[in-house]
Design a protein around this nucleic acid. Structure first.
Lengths: 194, 194
DNA sequence: TCCAGGTTGTACTGATCAGTACATCAGCGC
DNA sequence: GCGCTGATGTACTGATCAGTACAACCTGGA
């Protein structure tokens, strides 16, 4: 693939991600993506076998964007870092100009019963959670988390709170439910401190 | 509307709810609903102005089904009742034969950016939460909840945990995230006990 | 019996959908 | 300059979509 082709492919994924984030996958037709990206149909089917493959690329793009928006998640080496992490999440959704919602969470309801897509979403969520788990592991190694705590399960429960907070924040376009859910999640983690 | 018409209308909403629960709203065409319900197109547009109005009826039906599945939510008059409530939720989703997911939560991602649908979903969630709030109010009146606790906000945070737990449980088809999230939610409520 | 209002079957429209066919273009190595 | 390969433009197909038109139906009350 040449640099020109790469740019075109990126433009298609960009436009698709934006449209699918706001309107959902089913409501985002290939034609709309192509109009928004300025590409033609032959490009779309040159770089993607079908719409499903485009959705795959969009899911990956969502995850990369999410992780880039919360840099502290890769540096959770003390309890204060968890507080900074929740502040980063809140800051993202306090910024105006886009709906308050998790791009991955938006797909869960619409596509979660397609086992193929569910597997991709699961993979994305697990990568997201793995950073939380790594942070908890480092705390446990430092003796700041109970030795019998289960970092993977704690990470999963934390993610559940994040997603639930975002879902209600989305419906109400108000960050309060997210802020409260994040506080509860981190309080629960801290309750497992050694 | 005659009893016969009522039955036809109910059959349409039944079929639509089932299909939209599993496949999402956009993937559920009016034609599929009518085939599944055995009704004809003229009935559909006799009882509903358009597909959006059918979705409205489905949202209401989802809420009724959810509340019917957790009867204890209307009798949250001591802390033990909250534990029974979480058990009811888990039991529903431990039963096989249907995907593990919240019907309302499934719609949030797909339709949450349509302000009209978001308002309907918000209304449904508020009714759901109102029962939690009522329970917390009764506990506060009995002196079992701190006088300065905010029942509405606590109810909202609890709902966030429920929804997040269900979202991850959906993607993973495993009730563990839901069980953990429910436990965290109720533990947080109990931390506000007087 | 008759008839009015609620109910139903079927055929249709125009728009949009995902995906395909095929010709042309652009740029890079030779 | 030549030719190959990736990149692109455009026109098309058949399926499906939401919604409409219209005639025919029941069924209860007068």
């Amino acid at each position: 693939m040449t640099p020109r082709g790469r740019r075109t492919r990126d433009a298609i994924v960009d436009a698709a991600a934006e449209l699918m984030y706001v309107n959902g996958v089913a409501a985002t037709s290939v034609d709309k993506v192509l109009t928004a990206s300025g590409a033609g149909k032959s490009q779309m089917y040159h770089y993607f076998k079908n719409k499903d493959q485009l959705v795959e690329a969009v899911i990956d793009r969502f995850l990369r964007g999410i992780l880039a928006n919360q840099p502290t998640i890769t540096a959770l080496d003390d309890w204060a870092a968890f507080d900074r992490w929740t502040e980063e999440i809140l800051d993202v959704h306090r910024r105006a100009g886009h709906p308050i919602a998790c791009p991955l969470g938006n797909l869960a309801g619409e596509l979660g019963d397609d086992p193929r897509v569910a597997a991709l979403l699961d993979k994305a969520y697990r990568e997201w959670e793995s950073h939380l788990e790594r942070g908890l592991l480092s705390l446990r190694d430092k003796g700041e988390l109970r030795a019998d705590a289960d970092p993977a399960r704690l990470a999963q429960a934390t993610m559940a709170c994040v997603q639930g907070g975002l879902l209600l924040a989305h419906i109400r376009q108000d960050v309060t439910p997210l802020a409260d859910a994040l506080e509860i999640a981190v309080a629960h983690l801290r309750s497992q401190a050694a």
